[in-house]
Design a protein around this nucleic acid. Structure first.
Lengths: 277, 277
DNA sequence: CGGAATCTTGACTTACGTCAAATTGGGTGG
DNA sequence: CCACCCAATTTGACGTAAGTCAAGATTCCG
């Protein structure tokens, strides 16, 4: 439940000696020594899906060489989104899906009367924009929480390509389905867990996804505010803050603002799997 | 927000003079005079999608004659599910999607530690089983809340057919996307609304969907218990019951156990669109 | 007709929200 | 480079919506 990990792969800690940034560099992105963002604009260098170090986490999962080469023809553009900017907004005409290459996003919906709800946080390899297919207009806002880069996947082309290549079609359907299952997990969380359980589940989910990307399983920097966490978890920011403090008192976490170190993963897991109905 | 209506069509009150049950009969299904279920086993009579009176609400939306004829070849089997029985269960191998023909279902997920969450209620024309595509095993239970009948849509065949017919592919993607958008609406509800707002939103959503099926917009019979409503809305059954009572006191509803009459739809709507953050 | 499930209602508890006041830290402009 | 400022966070005191527990009432169904 509440497993957002995009693929059931083991941690990639050793599987990327070749092309990608090394584990230390990637870790450095999470715990940056230099607070500023290294702005290597990679736009001109075309990085194909077939040689992308996210291919095991992203749309290309499980595709054979032929299909993968086809996918390369599809993903031609990249787009940079600065921290705080939106990739798309509710009501925008839907043209493309986006795969996060680097950075971190949140998606939020809002109701007419100004209620606001964060519906998810997306990191490298995860897909954005699936909400737009339904009405051909986006149904949420996607906001970059740090300077980010996405691959643009023109939807019409994806559709026609996936009519030719069954594996691609299958993979795309699995990604949509996974999103539905993920959302059901969040409903379970929102509908039946108490504040501390929600936060524990959230942290475990985050670290699991980070770990699948080669980052540390115990050390992370939150890219979002307490308020954004609260919105996602259906809590007020003060409640989130108090829960963090309590976890620290209990020796489950070390919390320094957004720098989190997990001291007792099993303890967090126990919290999630504990309470009565 | 929280709009589960499967298609933006107007109420079908007049558009089905021909083949389907008339509005009164359909109304009778919701407010049955005879409590028992008329068990006309229609299995032997093949009812094609092309002549199904749910085609404007179900998978065939927007398909042309050719595509529709193809779809008819796909949907060969029907299955009856008695009240209380499951259509599929978490962990079951995924083979097919199901379109509700008659009756009413709930879907629920549960966590290892026995927490339980109703993730949705499905009525005629709505699709069940999308959760299973992701891992090829179902990720929730689908339980009939009254004697029901579904059309079985073999998934592999749907995939290959939608490789041939772009409109079908498109329509299928829209349905998956709509489910994602719906789920985000539920998250908003669970994360930011108070008990009475949740119940009001729930009732309005139900009646809207019933109305799209030609039923009364103001009179309905709930097919689920207070506890199931509570689970869906993240509330305890007592809270749901109290909210019903309060609505009745306020003259918004007339409540006789599961028989509900909406006396002030605008009032309910105002409740949903009211509260501060 | 009888028993079980479901629903209602009341009294009380509690987890979380609200409001408010410090404290911290990062980004920016001088 | 430093100082300032503002946003984010923490913490406390208090209020309240919803949960819990329990007793009855009602309806469904065999």
């Amino acid at each position: 439940m509440f497993n957002t990990s995009p693929a059931p792969h083991a941690a990639r800690e050793s599987s990327d000696a070749g092309d990608g940034p090394c584990a230390v560099q990637r870790f450095a992105r999470v715990n940056p020594v230099v607070p500023g963002h290294v702005h290597i604009q990679a736009e001109p260098f075309k990085v194909a899906c077939s040689s992308c170090n996210l291919r095991e986490l992203c749309l290309p999962v499980g595709l054979n060489k032929t299909d993968l080469d086809q996918l390369d023809t599809l993903v031609e553009t990249r787009r940079s989104v600065a921290r705080g900017e939106t990739l798309f907004r509710t009501g925008d005409s839907f043209q493309s899906l986006y795969a996060v290459r680097t950075g971190f996003f949140k998606t939020c919906v809002s109701s007419e009367d100004g209620r606001d709800q964060v519906t998810g946080f997306q990191m490298a390899g995860e897909l954005l924009g699936l909400d737009g297919i339904s009405t051909e207009r986006h149904a949420c806002d996607a906001v970059a929480l740090e300077d980010s880069q996405v691959c643009v996947i023109p939807y019409e082309q994806l559709e026609s390509l996936s009519r030719e290549f069954g594996d691609l079609q299958r993979q795309f359907h699995k990604i949509m389905s996974r999103e539905i299952v993920r959302d059901h997990g969040v409903m379970l969380l929102l509908g039946s867990m108490r504040a501390e359980e929600r936060l524990a589940a959230f942290l475990l989910n985050l670290t699991q996804r980070l770990q699948a990307r080669g980052f540390s399983a115990s050390s992370l920097v939150l890219r979002m505010t307490r308020e954004e966490i609260g919105s996602y978890l259906g809590l007020k920011l003060e409640t989130v803050s108090r829960a963090f403090s309590k976890f620290q008192e209990q020796g489950l976490l070390e919390v320094k603002q957004r720098q989190i170190r997990i001291l007792d993963q099993a303890g967090l897991q126990a919290l999630v799997n504990s309470s009565p109905s």
